[in-house]
């Protein structure tokens, strides 16, 4: 192509601006603007009806009330745990899709991972409820098989929340893993075998380093989704869910305390940002590379 003239260059820039405008407007109107508003909300305090003053009280309340930061820490730990479990479950699945299964079998497996997403998250969680509640399918089955004497309540445990979160997140881990494993040249694995390596060493030295961007991006996506999930912990955890998003919801909708809710929202945003930064640091990845994988 020949060197564009000044006019053509200007035209091209205008074109780019026009094309980008909707995205930028979207970004501004629906992401930046509300966040600015929430930030302002979080830094004020009600001193009398319809009278507010700038204050750090909302954040002070968070740190002063062990309950709030307890739930905060719990949400972070559970999310990290759910992310790790999702990775453990998704990795073999992704490996089979990318390296073992061929053609139709591989697409079929992919579709199997996709099926849970054909119904809404609510329906999915309610499905788990039907399966796990004391009068539900699984406890009844356990009694029939003589494994337990009476039906056991399988809901409302931490393990139940984790299972639900892993199930909900699986696809978001499998997709980046498959794409990063597919790009792994099989001959690298054969070469490692040929040089005397065994399975675990190959996994550690060849497969994982190669898949690192995919693993990191999957973990980031799953962690964020899990941290911000509201329905699954709430429905499956019942009276013991103690998820941070629930506190935010309560502050906003039940307590009409938008100021506190906004502060909680920002703390959650800070948490997820910090965890992502930590994850990138630990895995030695760059954010841009990782997001390209996702």
């Amino acid at each position: 192509m020949s060197e564009p003239s000044g006019h053509a260059l200007w035209q091209r820039r205008m074109m780019l601006a026009v094309l980008l405008t909707p995205a930028l407007l979207w970004l501004f109107a629906l992401i930046i603007l509300p966040h600015v508003q929430l930030a302002l909300l979080s830094f004020r305090e009600r001193i009398a009806p319809r009278t507010y003053a700038a204050s750090l009280m909302q954040y002070r309340t968070f740190f002063a009330e062990p309950l709030y930061w307890g739930v905060f820490v719990r949400t972070a730990i559970m999310s990290a745990l759910a992310t790790a479990m999702t990775l453990l479950v998704a990795f073999p699945v992704a490996w089979i899709i990318a390296k073992v299964a061929r053609g139709r079998a591989s697409s079929l497996l992919f579709v199997l991972c996709l099926i849970p997403f054909w119904v809404s998250e609510t329906v999915r969680a309610l499905g788990w409820l039907i399966l796990l509640r004391e009068s539900g399918v699984l406890p009844t089955l356990l009694v029939r098989l003589g494994i337990t004497a009476v039906p056991v309540e399988l809901l409302y445990h931490n393990a139940t929340i984790l299972i639900g979160l892993v199930y909900t997140s699986l696809l978001f881990m499998v997709v980046p893993l498959v794409s990063s494993l597919e790009s792994l040249d099989n001959s690298l694995i054969e070469a490692a075998y040929n040089l005397g390596a065994k399975g675990p060493a190959i996994l550690r030295q060849i497969v994982i380093p190669h898949a690192a961007p995919g693993i990191t991006s999957g973990c980031i996506v799953v962690f964020m989704l899990t941290l911000g999930n509201y329905l699954t912990p709430n429905l499956l955890g019942g009276k013991n869910s103690q998820w941070f998003t629930e506190l935010i919801y309560t502050q906003f909708i039940v307590r009409f305390n938008w100021e506190q809710g906004a502060a909680f929202g920002f703390l959650l945003l800070a948490l997820s940002t910090a965890m992502v930064a930590l994850g990138l640091r630990v895995s030695g990845q760059r954010f841009v590379d990782v997001m390209r994988r996702a």
């Binding site: 040249d185 001959s187 690298l188 054969e190 070469a191 490692a192 030295q205 380093p209 190669h210």
Partner: peptide
């Protein structure tokens, strides 16, 4: 073995 595309470990 020396592989067709060498299969050096890029990592």
């Amino acid at each position: 073995m020396v592989f067709q595309h060498l299969a050096l470990f890029p990592m």
